[in-house]
Amino acid sequence: AYVTIPKGKAPFPAIVLPHGGPWVRDTVIFDEWSQLLASNGYVVIQPNYRGSTGYGLEHWKAGDKNWGLKMQDDLDDAAMYLVDSGLAVKNKLAMFGWSYGGYAAFAA
């Protein structure tokens, strides 16, 4: 996962930002959404959940028939990682996305 941390002192409100697809992945590039959210005080996590490409065939196929199930668990685990690491506030978590990420946000 990629984490964008805003200026200031943690913990922050948090946004889980799942990518679309789901058969793509987030990479290390300038991401307008994560930067916009972080500039407004949110810590942002972009997990490459099951079904994401670039981590081998087993990881990619682990998403088969798991929309809203294990793939969703990966996103929830990403949110809890932020809480457990002290970066996020447990009662201030949200999910935002488009394409598959929009579906995942709706399911959340």
Rank of each mutant, 00 (worst) to 15 (best):
M80V: 00
H19Y: 13
F12C: 10
A104P: 02
L75N: 13
Y49G: 07
I15N: 06
I15D: 07
A10M: 14
P13L: 13
H19Q: 15
I45P: 04
L82N: 04
F106P: 00
D74W: 02
V44E: 01
N91P: 01
T4S: 03
V83L: 06
T53H: 04
Y42S: 11
P22S: 03
Y81F: 14
W67E: 07
A78W: 02
V43A: 02
R25S: 15
P11W: 09
N40D: 15
V3F: 04
E58W: 06
V16W: 06
T4F: 00
N66C: 01
D73I: 00
Q35C: 08
I29S: 12
W60Y: 15
D73R: 09
P6M: 02
A38W: 08
S85V: 14
Y100D: 01
W33P: 01
M80G: 00
V3T: 15
V24H: 01
A62V: 06
A108Y: 13
N40C: 14
K61C: 08
E32C: 07
D76P: 00
G97T: 07
Y81K: 11
G51T: 14
N91I: 01
I15T: 11
G63M: 02
K70G: 09
G68T: 03
N48Q: 14
P18F: 03
A79Y: 03
Y103S: 07
K65Y: 02
K92H: 15
I15A: 07
P47Y: 10
K61M: 12
Q72G: 09
W60P: 00
A1P: 11
N48W: 08
F12S: 09
Q72W: 08
F30T: 05
